[in-house]
Amino acid sequence: MRLIGILGGYACLGLSFLIVIEILARKLFNVSLQGVDEIGGYVVAITGTFGMALAAVERAHTRIDVLLLRLPKRVQAALNLLSYVGLGIGAAFMAYMGWRTLSDSLLFGSVSSSPLQTPLWLPQSLWLAGLVVFGLSALWTALRGLLALRAGLDAANRVLAPPTIAEEIEEAKR
């Protein structure tokens, strides 16, 4: 999963360079590269879905900890498990809708309305793959948490709960 994060980072870095080149070309030469905004949309959509998958595995999705930390450990574990199941179900629904979108694009041979005329099945396939990986990652984390519950609430919270401040400091040191 870490490789996915690294590749996503390089894709965003490449997009940043492309945007800088586009800006310089417009300001200095009054020329546009055409399609940088379209490519940017594809990069953001694809890296976003794979990034959500990485966040699911790394326990990095945003939660309201103020209330969660005041609840009993058993309730915390149940809510954390429920949140990952809900995340997986939501991602599965998004993947289903993504599949329908991709199917329509394939059926009709859809291309983008920009000068690039990108066949839409190309970016949509990668976007759908990211949604599938996201859903599987969330459900995998939920399953790991459920299995960890057999070892106790502390073990389940190490899999499901948001990272503690001490864990975040330790991660930052690496």
Rank of each mutant, 00 (worst) to 15 (best):
M1F: 06
L3A: 14
I4A: 14
G5D: 00
G8E: 01
G9V: 08
Y10V: 14
A11I: 03
G14R: 09
G14L: 09
L15H: 07
L15S: 06
F17T: 13
F17L: 15
F17W: 12
L18R: 04
V20K: 02
I21G: 03
I23F: 11
L24M: 10
L28G: 09
L33M: 11
E38P: 00
E38I: 01
E38A: 01
G41L: 00
G41C: 07
G41S: 04
A45F: 01
I46N: 00
G48L: 07
G51K: 01
M52S: 06
V57P: 02
E58I: 09
E58L: 13
R59Q: 02
A60Y: 03
A60L: 09
H61W: 02
T62F: 13
R63C: 07
D65A: 11
D65N: 13
L67P: 02
L68N: 01
L68H: 10
P72K: 09
R74S: 13
V75M: 09
Q76L: 07
A77F: 06
A77C: 09
L79V: 11
N80E: 14
L81F: 08
L82F: 05
G88R: 08
F93I: 15
A95W: 00
M97C: 11
R100V: 15
T101P: 07
D104Q: 15
L106Q: 08
L107Y: 15
F108Y: 14
G109S: 02
S110F: 11
S110Y: 09
S110K: 10
V111M: 10
V111S: 11
V111W: 09
S114C: 04
P115Y: 15
P115T: 12
L116Q: 01
P119R: 02
L120W: 03
W121C: 05
W121N: 03
L122N: 08
Q124E: 13
S125M: 08
S125K: 02
L126R: 08
A129Y: 00
L131V: 04
V133E: 04
V133G: 04
G135S: 03
S137C: 10
A138G: 08
L139E: 07
W140R: 14
W140C: 02
T141D: 00
L143Q: 10
R144C: 05
G145F: 05
L147H: 10
L147P: 08
L149R: 06
R150G: 10
R150L: 12
G152W: 05
D154V: 08
D154R: 00
A155Y: 04
R158L: 08
R158H: 09
A161I: 08
E170K: 11
E171G: 02
K173H: 13
R174F: 08
